[in-house]
Computed example of a mutant assay.
Amino acid sequence: MKPDPSVIQAFTPAGKLRASINLGNPILAGKDASGAAVGVSVDLARAFAAALGVELELVVFDAAGKSVQAVSEERADFGFFAVDPLRGETIEFTEPYVLIEGYYMVRDASPIRHNGDVDQSQNRVAVGKGSAYDLFLTRELKHAQIVRAPTSPTVVQTFLDESLEVAAGVKQQLESDARKASGLRLLDERFMVIRQAMGVPKSRGAAAAHALHAFVEEMKASGFVAEALERHGIVGATVAPAA
């Protein structure tokens, strides 16, 4: 990747490259023992800063909605998000670099056995506020009530504390939480595929969006994304195909 000076300027109006990092999705990022942000998205952010030849600043959030808002309001210069039409009003997305599955979780004794059983008026579904699956299920569910937890990592606790019927989220997060509490099970099929991409404010222009798109395709083709997933011990997520 050979950066154009105008593209560098488009990405660094504050003098450095500010990457919006969401810690609410464990597939993308988390914290190490020192409390520093680490993960696939952090690795990609550093690689993009290196490609542009600029200083990187990580702007860290605990929820997807906050991370999206930071980029939409240009308090960050790019970020890592699930592709969604609502978010696409202010953010220009690349093609996805990783595909993640969204699943439902219920109690062992629940009569809910299949995804089709969820959208019933008696069911309340816990989701992470502003997450990709919150946006998706808000459009898709016609009868069930959506209950929004503050962040994705608090979905299962909200589900348990409020005695809700269903929890919805990223498969790996739900599986991890289910291991900490007995009597929970995931349904046997995903309700959505989350297309995880990078994004830049639309106001930064077509050249900036094209440069970010090219970077993502290069990272997939070179094996960088696959190696990052392996390095961070991420299972259940797959590298998205080339655009």
Rank of each mutant, 00 (worst) to 15 (best):
P85Q: 14
R139D: 08
A221E: 07
F61D: 12
A126E: 02
L141K: 10
L99V: 05
D108E: 15
R139A: 12
R75T: 09
A132P: 01
L229Y: 00
L212Y: 03
H114D: 13
V127C: 04
F215C: 03
F159A: 10
L52I: 08
K180D: 09
P13V: 11
G39T: 06
A47G: 08
D188L: 06
D77I: 07
L174G: 01
A211I: 04
R195L: 13
T12R: 10
T154E: 06
G169L: 10
V118I: 14
E74L: 07
P96G: 09
G24R: 06
P85D: 13
R124Y: 00
F224D: 05
V59Q: 10
V59F: 03
G15Y: 08
G116I: 06
F136C: 05
L58C: 05
A178H: 07
S34D: 14
A49T: 01
S182F: 11
E217D: 13
F191K: 04
Q196G: 02
H114P: 01
F191I: 02
P5F: 11
N123D: 00
H213K: 11
A14P: 03
A214V: 08
D177A: 15
A50C: 02
V239G: 06
S152T: 06
E189L: 10
R107K: 15
V38N: 04
A168R: 05
G233H: 04
Q9R: 15
V166G: 07
V125E: 04
E230D: 09
K142A: 13
E189R: 15
Y103R: 15
S20E: 12
S203N: 11
E227V: 00
Q157R: 14
I21T: 04
V42E: 06
L135P: 01
A33V: 07
A76S: 15
F191S: 02
R195A: 14
H143Y: 08
G169V: 10
V166E: 06
S34N: 13
V166I: 12
Y104W: 13
